[in-house]
Amino acid sequence: MNAPVVPGCVSRSGLNWLLHRAAQKLGSVAQEAAGRHGITTRGQLVLTALASEECRRTQLALGQALGLDKTTLTAELDRLERAELIVRKPDPTDRRVRVPAITERGRAVQAEVEKLHVEVESAFTAGLEPADVHTLRALLQRLIVSDSGSDSGSCI
């Protein structure tokens, strides 16, 4: 059963509120899907980045690519390593630097959660026409890569 609608919230039309509310609704279901495999949505983002890497990345470079600060990324990598989904090895050129790598178990979990996330997104956008979903994605990508606004903070 849905929670009662608060009249003051129904009329919100600011872009920040709309984007936040849509992300909140989608994010809670995506988190539930990831949680079924013992990881967080952020963990899934890290695993996906590591699974798709053609070249190795240091922790610092990975954090920058994902928009995660050092503390947040380190905590997430610690969780993933304890779950044996990643390993961190010293960089052969600089032993002070750690290079995270996804394990086979990590690849399996990442693939399963990715399937669930695709299902979640499909259900979330089911009321939209496929062309509208495509347009929504394209517009959001344009906003993300635009030069306006700061690019600081976590991606999730």
Rank of each mutant, 00 (worst) to 15 (best):
A101R: 09
F124M: 04
E32P: 04
V109L: 02
Q141I: 15
T40I: 08
V145M: 08
T48V: 09
T71N: 07
D69C: 14
K70Y: 03
I102L: 07
A101M: 13
E32A: 10
A61E: 15
R57D: 04
A65N: 09
E32W: 01
V5H: 07
P100N: 03
D94V: 07
D94G: 13
V87P: 00
V145G: 02
A23Q: 07
W17R: 09
A34H: 02
Q24V: 06
E84N: 11
D94M: 14
T74I: 05
A51M: 04
I102F: 01
F124E: 05
G67E: 08
Q141D: 04
A34Y: 00
R96Q: 12
T41L: 13
I144N: 06
T125R: 12
V97I: 15
E114V: 13
T58M: 07
L62T: 05
E112F: 02
S122D: 11
R105L: 11
V133R: 14
K70Q: 05
E76S: 10
A34S: 11
Q64A: 12
G8N: 10
A83W: 01
R96D: 13
L45R: 12
N16I: 13
I39D: 14
E81H: 10
A49P: 04
T48L: 05
H117F: 01
R142Q: 11
R142G: 14
S11A: 08
V99I: 05
L139G: 05
V97A: 11
L140Q: 13
R88K: 08
L136G: 05
R42L: 13
H117S: 03
A126Y: 03
Q141P: 00
R42E: 13
L80D: 00
S148V: 12
L60T: 15
V97K: 06
E54Q: 11
H20Q: 14
E104A: 11
V29K: 09
E114R: 04
A111I: 01
G106F: 00
C155T: 14
E53N: 10
R79Q: 06
T40H: 11
V10D: 03
Q24E: 15
V99N: 01
T48Q: 11
A75E: 10
E104Q: 06
D91K: 07
T41F: 00
V118G: 03
L50F: 00
T103G: 03
L15F: 00
H37L: 14
T71H: 10
A51H: 02
A33G: 08
A101G: 02
T71M: 07
L19Y: 06
V113Y: 03
I102W: 02
K25S: 08
L15E: 14
L15P: 02
K115T: 05
L19D: 10
E129V: 15
Q44I: 03
R105Q: 10
A123G: 06
W17E: 08
T41I: 09
L68V: 15
G106C: 07
L77F: 00
I39M: 15
L66T: 08
H134S: 05
